[in-house]
């Protein structure tokens, strides 16, 4: 017999089953943590937000409607809202995140693993406005469809497509400033 699906586990979680909850955490924490780390620009913020998101899942399990959305979409929506609340609380002027934060957060081992290209990309991502960064991460990294990403961000599909387009162009321009190679030539066009 295969592993139980997310919907089945959520049914058990809404009945207070901690074992089912631990299965869900094990299955989805790495994916959610990746999104939140790149969105917030630091692994420490990724930790905090992931923890809070899963605790919200535990507290609000009875609000999950299996037929309406996939669990992973619902989880990302919770996490995205938490992040938005967080930046509203801490950054009333809603400034983009400090790009330097990306370089500070990963530990030495992670730094070794990150290639130059990847570090520059993370820095360029951090400089993008939050909504563009979020749209790019959800579609290009997390693998959501435009429709699902729009639902997570509580926006329309057209608005999301526009965010994606501006985000891609923004990345190209920012990378062109820091990479004296193909990207640079392309960004100058």
């Amino acid at each position: 017999m295969g592993e139980p699906g997310d919907d089945e586990l959520m049914k058990a979680v809404s009945a207070g089953d901690q074992v089912a909850f631990s299965h869900l955490v094990k299955r989805h924490l790495p994916i959610l943590h990746r999104y939140l780390t790149h969105l917030a620009g630091s692994a420490a913020d990724g930790d905090e937000l992931s923890q809070e998101a899963f605790l919200r899942v535990w507290q609000s399990a009875d609000k999950f409607r299996p037929g309406k959305a996939r669990f992973i979409t619902w989880l990302h929506r919770i996490a995205h809202n938490l992040y938005i609340d967080e930046i509203r609380r801490n950054r009333p002027d809603n400034l983009p995140l400090d790009p330097e934060a990306v370089d500070e957060s990963p530990g030495p081992e992670q730094q070794m693993q990150l290639g130059q290209e990847s570090r520059l990309l993370q820095q360029a991502l951090a400089e993008l406005p939050e909504a563009q960064r979020s749209a790019l991460l959800l579609c290009q990294v997390q693998g959501f469809s435009n429709q699902e990403a729009a639902a997570i961000m509580d926006t329309g599909v057209r608005a999301l497509e526009s965010l994606l387009a501006r985000g891609r162009r923004g990345l190209r321009q920012r990378l062109a400033r820091s990479v004296p190679s193909t990207v640079k030539k392309a960004g100058q066009q």
Partner: peptide, 18 residues
């Protein structure tokens, strides 16, 4: 080519450990 490099770098972000 530049866009492909960006896509490839974005794909590389999928490698993530927690």
């Amino acid at each position: 080519e530049a866009e492909r490099q960006i896509d490839s770098a974005l794909s590389a972000l999928r490698e993530h450990a927690v």
